[in-house]
């Protein structure tokens, strides 16, 4: 059974159809990149998978670990092992980062029939993850994402991912707005969480993050459909030649 199976997924925001039949299969341990221009439907795909209610799913299905993902609430998706690293992580004034993480982890553990971690065990786990990701402990004392730089927000997302240890992580435009140092830090963090079992989907406009997170497969999303799939080389070709050759190819195929 595949970890994630998207079949003919259609979705719209308001009257506008954005996803027009997306097919994508991801197996455990695989790293996939979904690339595409602005407006191709990348963020819609991420949002629909995470359970954001701004979109209406009008067709197709999504199976996560064999279960109907679209029937699950956002928290159920998370507890089942789906993690979304958001393009724009939300600031939570007054909510302490440690408290937030502990509430999240214990919600996930409860779902899996595990006892809640006590403060000591939790701090031990958290410190371990911080060390692996080379993030300073001061992060724990701060309010969630409040006053964080763009890079700090994205690293906090990766840190949350490390603590929650999901089966599948989707990184939505994690590279956007990052300078080269932040990009390297985030990229190496994700690579450390690549353990041969976890599925990872990197959604991005640019190839550059893929220098740090080498994908097994690359897909191109165009006008709400996956129009081409390939390997790492496809990303490099898109980086070198742009998307226009592919757009023409798709157009002429449609004309035939």
């Amino acid at each position: 059974m595949s970890l994630l199976e998207i079949r003919g997924l259609r979705a719209r925001a308001g009257a506008k159809e954005i996803l027009k039949g997306v097919d994508l299969t991801i197996n455990a341990g695989e790293v996939h990149a979904v690339m595409g221009l602005n407006g191709s439907g990348k963020s819609t795909l991420a949002n629909v998978l995470s359970g954001k209610d701004d979109y209406e799913v009008t067709g197709g299905e999504v199976l996560f670990d064999g279960n109907d993902l679209m029937e699950m609430s956002p928290e159920e998706r998370s507890r089942a092992g789906l993690f979304m690293a958001f393009q724009y992580p939300v600031e939570l004034p007054g909510v302490n980062n440690t408290y937030f993480l502990k509430a999240a982890l214990n919600a996930v553990r409860k779902e899996n029939g595990q006892d809640a971690l006590d403060a000591m065990d939790f701090m031990k786990l958290v410190r371990e993850k911080l060390k692996v990701l080379e993030i300073g402990e001061d992060l724990l004392k701060r309010e969630v994402n409040v006053g964080f730089s763009g890079g700090e927000k994205k690293r906090n997302e990766i840190f949350q991912m490390a603590v929650l240890d999901p089966k599948l992580a989707i990184l939505d435009e994690t590279d956007s707005g990052l300078d080269i140092d932040a990009l390297r830090a985030v990229g190496s963090g994700v690579t450390k969480l690549r353990d041969g079992k976890r599925g990872i989907v990197v959604i991005t406009h640019y190839q550059r993050l893929l220098n740090y997170i080498e994908p097994d497969f690359v897909h191109v999303l165009m006008d709400g459909r996956i129009v081409l799939s390939g390997t790492r080389d496809l990303a490099l070709k898109l980086e070198a030649d742009g998307y226009s050759w592919l757009e023409e190819q798709v157009k002429s195929a449609a004309a035939v």
């Binding site: 954001k52 609430s73 956002p74 928290e75 998706r77 992580p89 939300v90 939570l92 919600a107």
Partner: peptide, 15 residues
């Protein structure tokens, strides 16, 4: 947005 963010981390709506 804040509620959704918390829920996306597994925290139930009430909590």
């Amino acid at each position: 947005e804040a509620l959704f963010y918390l829920r996306s981390r597994g925290i139930g709506l009430e909590e």
